[in-house]
């Protein structure tokens, strides 16, 4: 049986409409990607520019990377950034995981309040948090006392205030990521463990923790990345003379932009990207890692 003509023409019109819809969507997609990634691409390209200019191409060179690694100030700031990220990640991963377990597994008075307080550092502006922390460090007398440490041969003086500041915001992110994983976890697995004679600690060690691992690793990588990239809170809580890489870059920009800054930024970009890829790969391997990708 043939389809009546009016339906045929209608079909054709629908076809054209959906095709046009397809094209405009593709165009829109390309533009959106260009908007997001073109600046990054330009940044990376000009880090290889054989001139002081960051807008005129004059040939390819690795010079700026060489210069970057010879600049003592930059090197020190990289060590500072790494040390700060590692220490604050370890502390906030432990605290955040414990907080997630507590919030997900126990009922107590004021739980809702504590619960929403955990989201606060995630939603309030960095600047507000930075000022709060600064006031807190001044009033509490913690000040900017540095932790003097030899880190892979680099002599660092990292103010405790910066570490506490980073832990303060990272803990929330870790707690949120780990909680998402916990919420997905089947509670009967823990019951099964205790049914098979495991005490509370053995149940946690052998069942809960391994099941949570993708969430914990994801949270830790997120914390590491956030710590590495943070500018505002570091800037406000470090006092004079302590530079992380982002703070150092900010200082350099004030003296004029050279491709060296592009090189530094490209390096930071590469590290961040690597971390994201690692976290995605880890979550893939564990089978289901929707919770891990959260936040990136």
């Amino acid at each position: 049986m043939s389809v009546p003509a009016r339906f045929q023409s209608n079909d054709r019109w629908q076809q054209i409409k959906s095709k046009m819809g397809g094209w405009s969507l593709t165009t829109y997609g390309i533009l959106a990607f260009a908007f997001l990634y073109l600046p990054i691409l330009i940044l990376v390209i000009f880090s290889f520019n054989d001139a002081r200019s960051v807008s005129k191409w004059a040939g390819f060179t690795f010079d700026w990377y060489g210069k970057m690694f010879k600049d003592g100030q930059i090197l020190l700031s990289i060590w500072n950034s790494l040390f700060l990220a590692i220490v604050s990640t370890i502390i906030s991963t432990v605290l955040g995981t414990l907080a997630a377990l507590g919030l997900e597994r126990y009922r107590f008075r004021g739980k809702t309040a504590v619960d929403s307080m955990f989201y606060l550092p995630v939603i309030i502006p960095d600047i507000a948090m930075a000022i709060m922390l600064l006031l807190f460090f001044n009033m509490s007398g913690i000040g900017f006392t540095p932790w003097k440490v030899n880190f892979f041969g680099a002599r660092l003086a990292v103010p405790y205030s910066v570490i506490i500041g980073h832990v303060a915001f990272n803990t929330s992110f870790v707690a949120i990521v780990v909680r998402a994983r916990l919420a997905q976890m089947d509670r009967t697995l823990e019951e099964a463990a205790s049914d098979l004679y495991a005490n509370a600690w053995q149940t946690f060690r052998r069942v809960t923790l391994p099941m949570l691992m993708p969430g914990i690793v994801g949270g830790a990588l997120l914390a590491f990345t956030l710590s590495l990239d943070d500018f505002v809170i570091t800037f406000f809580t470090s006092g004079a003379g302590f530079n992380t890489l982002p703070v150092r870059v900010f200082g350099m920009i004030k003296k004029g932009v050279t491709p060296k800054i592009n090189a530094v930024s490209t390096l930071m970009l590469a590290v961040s990207l690597t971390l994201v890829v690692i976290s995605i790969l880890l979550s893939r391997r564990s089978g289901d890692g929707d919770s891990v990708q959260m936040g990136f």
């Binding site: 089947d186 019951e191 099964a192 098979l196 004679y197 495991a198 052998r206 099941m211 089978g287």
Partner: peptide, 28 residues
């Protein structure tokens, strides 16, 4: 539960997904 001389077969089986079959069985 861990001190009772009973064992349970759960409705959703509750097998530990991060362990092999042999490890699951050996757990208790």
């Amino acid at each position: 539960a861990n001190k009772r001389p009973v064992n349970t077969v759960f409705q959703n089986y509750a097998l530990f997904p991060h362990m092999t079959v042999a490890e699951n069985i050996a757990f208790g």
